[in-house]
């Protein structure tokens, strides 16, 4: 990314860290100063130090719940992407099916998640199945739209080439159409990864009995603000990690693919 030489001293790392994250540190210091000086009740706003303390001294609570949320988000993402890809392929293979599937997918995806959760919970039960279902629905649409477009964006001239080579429909699909969709598929993955975590947490928050979303709601209602803030910190870290790893994966694939 940046034109950096191979050898970097620890001092350089510190400098980079300061130049990039001084804002975050500044906010934390200001926050701590504000709660200390004004003496606001910790039920309203906790001390940042207490939040860090809760994270450090109760790792088990966070780890178990974060693990569950992350697992559900990942499983839902994989299943949703697989489903979206399959439907896109079916739509590609038949113009009639495409005419049914594209508007259906569009209508389905326009329904807000919050509205879907109670319906789905009644159907699947007030547990992890609904959380998984929500993540699948959220991840389905980008995979469907982007894969469908990718299946049609073939390299220039390649379509004629395959015809002249006498390729069958199947060979054309395997050697040309499907690989052409890979860069678009990676875009869908990048776009779906953070919302997958977010929607898993939202579902847990609204109807779950475990996971980060549930942990947040529970601690907020019990006025355990340190725990609630700690949960937010973990959730943010997971979302950022999901996004950056999806970006890295996309970059890696594009280097090979484009």
């Amino acid at each position: 990314m940046s034109p950096v030489s191979q050898t970097r001293s620890p001092l350089d790392w510190v400098k980079t860290a300061i130049s990039r994250y001084w804002g975050v540190v500044g906010v934390l210091i200001a926050w701590q100063a504000w709660v200390t000086i004004t003496g606001v009740n910790s039920i309203v706003i906790p001390h940042p130090i207490n939040v860090v303390g809760d994270l450090v001294f109760n790792p088990g609570v966070y780890l178990a719940n974060a693990g569950q949320t992350l697992f559900l988000a990942a499983a839902g993402l994989i299943l949703g992407m697989a489903l979206g890809t399959m439907v896109a392929i079916v739509a590609w293979s038949s113009r009639i099916l495409s005419g049914i599937l594209v508007p259906l997918g569009l209508i389905f995806s326009s329904v807000p998640v919050v509205a879907l959760i109670p319906v789905l919970a009644r159907l699947l039960g007030y547990d992890v199945k609904t959380v998984l279902g929500i993540v699948i629905i959220i991840s389905f649409f980008p995979a469907f739209v982007f894969t469908a477009a990718g299946l049609k964006s073939l390299p220039p001239g390649s379509s004629d080439l395959f015809k002249v080579f006498g390729a069958s429909r199947w060979t054309r699909f395997v050697h040309l159409v499907l690989p052409s969709a890979v860069p678009n598929w990676m875009i869908a993955l990048r776009l779906s990864a953070p919302p997958a975590v977010l929607s898993a947490m939202l579902a847990e928050f609204l109807m779950g009995k475990s996971g980060l979303g549930f942990l947040f709601r529970q601690s907020a209602t019990e006025f355990a603000t340190e725990r609630a803030f700690g949960t937010s910190v973990i959730a943010t870290v997971i979302s950022v990690l999901c996004f950056t790893s999806a970006v890295a994966a996309e970059k890696f694939i594009n280097e090979k693919w484009k």
Binding site: P155, G157, K163, G166, H175, P179, W257
Partner: peptide, 19 residues
């Protein structure tokens, strides 16, 4: 001839598959 894979072709567009 193309079905029998006995036709060779090169266009202005090289049409190489980038991946």
């Amino acid at each position: 001839l193309s079905r029998a894979h006995r036709l060779g072709v090169a266009f202005q567009d090289h049409a190489l598959l980038p991946w």
